[in-house]
Design a protein around this nucleic acid. Structure first.
Lengths: 673, 673
DNA sequence: TTGTGGGCATCGAGCCGACAA
DNA sequence: TTGTCGGCTCGATGCCCACAA
């Protein structure tokens, strides 16, 4: 709209985005959490999320337009096309996607398709050679230029000729629209610093940057400088569309999707990562993967958020409820059907509802769940065999792909009529059933517990002690299910297993008072030795531990997986663990990391064992005494005033949080800087 | 988004349009042609027009989305609510309307309802105390201020104290968002002039005004100054919506309307008068009125357009076709179903297709059409009487309100199977039938012309000479239908009728070489005398000439009407003529204007006679020699290569254009300045 | 009557180091 | 290491009239 300033600083304007937008720069501007599904892959489209995006951009609650088109809450689509764009006025990044709903009857769900789809799983395209700075008042004032952080200047900018007095050069960087900006880069002042002076203010005013907004510089493969902006989350001017009412937009989204779904014809959507509260086009693989997460009340999870300085941070939270976000118009939708609470009080801007695929469950015994366990085809009514019976038992415990491709609402929730204990028992049985080497039929406890027992803690206790005894995993850790004292239990663990010692080591790093003079280097060596012995312990068993590591150009990740395969023809139980690094991992670090991962996985296994014990004891003693020392927990809660079930949930959450923290601290201390 | 500049010039910002927008200012910014239907009235909503608006704002052709919702091309609605808005960023004006489709089965169409609805007919709300200036390069440069046109300053601004040296004052004006702007108003320079200096440039830069944009000042009822802007039609930045694809918008419009239509529920639309190529919410009365216009190929019409300087101008055009704008998706739609050509070659930016209600037909013999002629109820099949027969004859000649409220497509088009001559004959017969004092039945010529005649010009000639002899209107002008030479014909006209002399006088003003020393004052006197005699000629006849003049506060118009009433109990044939003035008409000018109007109407009658002759001759000679001298026409077209029908249409158009120009020049010379 | 440009005063944009967080 | 400030310079802003269309 505006002609480029006369001083010629922004030059070479590409008329109307002829040249496609630089992907690296786009992703840098979009933020570290944004990843786009790849073209050609299968995705799940959520109309509710799409509407949220429009509502957010209009800064307007969407009116109560009924979903009269009977559009399903999600559409499985083929993603034909993804193109990157940037608003010419505001530099806002957005992506245009062409989706084509997959015909219901053609939807074939088999492992191969899923695996193939997994190839197109998101990659974090955050460029490595970049820096991002939030602008200060001085940076944006007309009084001066831009103060470049020293590290950033040295890493990204062409090196200055320090023989000059003062050292200075012309810096040319291209923005999203392929427009070149030329700044004077000078190293001066007392003490010396890197500054961008001439033309900087033109850039600021042209882009209408304010203090709090961010600029980012990238050095791409060709060593060319790229320049992007990322505006603060301050209130935006509400996109006052003067041509289309929000109602029409709302209904337009529904109708476009409904029309496409009815005809299996392509439709086009815009995804604006900075405007949208959440992604609404999810890679099918990611979605499917998330389906295996068994969510339940009180479950602990992590979720990634973007920090001020272009970084990411995981926040911990607890699931406080599972229910339809909009029970009237979008019944049984998986969109934001999980109500959550956040650990930190500064969680004002974090959502109170999330979707399954947004969260990373923190491993607990309840989430061990065999993939591909359920038969591919829906059970025929009246089928009398054991498998059908087992299926009923595990309904709710095992995510499955039904006719409508997905869990049908209530199935993924807790059984409303069951107590927590009953439910837990079921979980244990399901695990038992799938991980023991004998695929024998274990009767459903849920069905057999009389109501009278559920409502009487003392009777429950005795019942519990009968049924919750766990099978010992081979190559693993023998736990005493009947131990009543947590101290004793922990001591027993420490004595019986080397792994518990490792766990205690990590705890000592942060909370416990023992081992104050902890030596990291020495500890790592110790760990390596122990991992080695662990491996030896596990390898000869009937279970297998597998490890994978991948390192692509853009993201560096190492993935570990434990597959517990009782028999060769039965689907394996698996645990996963991932490491992501922004910087490439040095070759010599690889083996170390691999072993760390292996160990972490084993720890997870171990924690699950411990937690099973804890939960069992919990219900015996009703949190008079916590199995794990956690003073905070004691101080915060007054248990006497709460009903038994709530105490149980709370105690569980706290235990899980505590253990998860141990894991995380461990990881943090190990992650390469 | 942007904070107001620090110098405090724009003050008192109303947060987010609490206060409703000043209606006068809104209309001034919207333009002189924009009028909104009043709340509570009935309107006709055209989805196609709505989509055009979005397409225009997106600067994108809408993709071929089928109208799969089977939405009718128009919806009769009750207009519940109209609110005025202005874009906070650009000051673009737009209106939000809540429409509720009227249930088909409840739609009652009777004259009373129509009359009642007519009350809510649009009023041109252009304020009287306002001025509008297109900004010059100097006005928008940083070098200086704003040069206020003398008249405007004296009319609108508070009067300066001329005892001061120099005379100056502070001028405060509020914009659409109720933000006050304070300018220094000074009267200085050699020669003296009114200038706005201090703070003017802040206004220009804040509103991002460029040379070519317009500013307008209004003094409202409370004598407060209001300030608006109107941007030039230069290419706008294409509203790159980063959240919603144009497809979704398109389908959203369809779906919202379809949903509302299906449920008779309200829906909301935005009407942006400066972005939209045409109004798409039409007052029912206006629409209904327009239905009585008999459109036909070659018909002459006027249409209002906005001029540079906030004024209006009528352009003349000719109907070149009648067909569906979008025959696939919107069959039988009345939206832009009229193809037109424009008289002036500078008609690049005028539409090639218009809708019925946009045009004012210029009365010609073909458009004489008795209102309320047709029986109120659709004809019963098998009715054998004359009236039914006549109805068949006039099918297409008389707009009627059928069951579906409106003309059902093809009826309003030319009979596809008929030649132009056949069709013209019909028109003439229809006129004959309705305007002669004997309502005798005249057999339809269309039905009796054999195809062989149509395809043979020579035979057509003889046929034509038999059938096209026109009845002489009493008090009118005797024309010789069989005169073969145009020169002779014109000469005869000049000798036989005083009116033809007037016509020639007007022609002489512009195109013909005779009467070079034309004296306007003298001519007007002459005209008056002749009009007087004309009146005397007409008055004693059985036809009546009526005149009306109206002068409301906002628009000053004088309207003339000739009612030709053959008998007292038959509906009159009428011609209308309107004068509109932006400034009040002085009292002493009134009688003069009245007579001008009367004369113009008579001229129209006369032209119609002439044209009938011309068209008859045209088909005899197939434009070997034009009845009216028009060299341009000869040069442009090579008739030998065109089929007969096309030549006829072209020649007709040119003749009509020529005569229309005569009328217009006459009008121009008479209109008070 | 009014658009444009030269003359000229003034203000703020923008470059510098000092200083402190 | 870097955010903010005072000092300083210079060019753009903006007010004036002359001149001409």
């Amino acid at each position: 709209m505006k002609a480029p300033p006369a001083n010629g600083s922004p030059a070479n304007p590409a008329e109307g985005e002829r040249k496609s937008i630089n992907s690296e720069l786009w992703h840098a501007c979009a933020g570290p959490l944004v990843s786009l599904p790849t073209a050609g892959s299968q995705v799940v489209y959520f109309p509710q999320g799409h509407i949220e995006q429009v509502a957010a951009s209009m800064q307007k609650e969407m009116d109560a337009i009924p979903n009269y088109l009977s559009l399903p809450s999600k559409l499985i689509c083929v993603l034909h096309n993804v193109t990157l764009h940037a608003d010419t006025e505001t530099d806002e990044v957005f992506a245009q996607m062409t989706l084509q709903p997959v015909d219901k009857f053609l939807q074939k769900y088999d492992r191969e398709a899923l695996m193939a789809s997994e190839m197109g799983l998101e990659q974090n395209k955050q460029p490595t050679e970049f820096f991002c700075k939030t602008l200060t008042a001085s940076d944006t004032s007309t009084h001066g230029g831009f103060s470049v952080p020293r590290r950033a200047a040295e890493k990204i900018f062409p090196h200055l000729d320090f023989t000059l007095q003062p050292p200075a050069q012309e810096l040319v960087a291209k923005d999203l629209h392929d427009i070149s900006w030329t700044f004077r880069h000078i190293y001066r002042g007392q003490p010396k610093r890197h500054l961008l002076t001439t033309s900087w203010s033109v850039f600021v005013s042209t882009k209408r940057l304010l203090a709090g907004d961010s600029v980012l510089f990238i050095r791409d493969e060709k060593s060319e400088l790229l320049l992007g902006i990322r505006r603060a989350n301050r209130q935006q001017p509400a996109l006052s569309s003067s041509v289309l009412s929000s109602d029409s937009m709302h209904i337009g989204i529904l109708a476009a999707a409904a029309h496409a779904a009815a005809n299996s014809s392509p439709f086009t959507i815009f995804y604006n990562p900075r405007a949208s509260p959440a992604e609404f086009v999810i890679p099918l693989a990611k979605y499917t993967k998330a389906l295996y997460t068994q969510v339940s009340l009180g479950m602990r999870f992590r979720m990634m958020f973007e920090t001020e300085e272009c970084g990411v941070r995981r926040y911990m939270g607890t699931i406080t409820g599972i229910s339809d976000f909009d029970p009237v118009r979008w019944k049984d939708s998986q969109w934001r059907n999980i109500q959550v609470g956040w650990d930190e009080s500064t969680a004002a801007d974090r959502p109170t509802r999330v979707s399954l695929w947004e969260i990373e469950p923190v491993a607990t015994p309840f989430y061990i769940c065999p993939p591909f366990f359920r038969p591919k085809f829906p059970k025929q009514p009246g089928m009398p065999d054991d498998e059908a019976e087992a299926e009923n038992t595990f309904k709710g415990a095992i995510p499955c792909l039904g006719d409508d491709f997905g869990i049908k609402g209530t199935q993924s929730q807790l059984f409303p009529g069951l107590s927590l204990v009953q439910w837990m028992t079921m979980q244990q049985n399901s695990r038992l059933n799938s991980s023991t080497s004998q695929p024998t039929y274990v009767p459903s406890m849920a069905a057999s517990i009389p109501d009278s027992i559920c409502n009487d803690p003392t009777r429950l206790l005795s019942f519990q002690s009968h049924t919750s005894s766990l099978p010992n995993l081979q190559g693993g850790f023998k736990l005493n299910p009947s131990s009543q004292q947590s101290d004793q239990h922990q001591k027993a663990q420490q004595q019986n297993s080397t792994k518990i010692q490792i766990q205690q080591k990590q705890e000592s790093l942060t909370h416990l008072k023992q081992d104050k003079h902890y030596n990291q280097q020495q500890d790592q060596q110790q760990i390596l030795t122990k991992v080695q012995s662990l491996n030896e312990q596990l390898q000869p068993s009937s279970y297998q531990i597998q490890q994978q590591q991948t390192q692509t150009q853009n993201s560096h990740s190492i993935q570990g997986e434990i597959l517990l395969s009782p028999t060769s023809h039965q689907s394996p139980v698996h645990f996963q663990s991932n490491y992501h690094f922004q910087q490439p991992v040095e070759q010599q670090q690889h083996s170390l990391l691999q072993q760390q991962i292996q160990m972490q996985l084993l720890q997870t296994l171990q924690h699950q064992q411990v937690l099973s014990q804890i939960s069992a004891q919990l219900h015996c003693k009703l949190s008079q005494q916590l199995p794990v020392q956690n003073q905070q927990f004691h101080q915060q809660q007054n248990f006497q005033q709460l009903p038994a079930h709530q105490i149980a949930v709370l105690a569980m959450s706290q235990c899980l949080a505590y253990l998860a923290k141990c894991c995380k601290n461990f990881r943090t201390s190990m992650t390469c800087k």
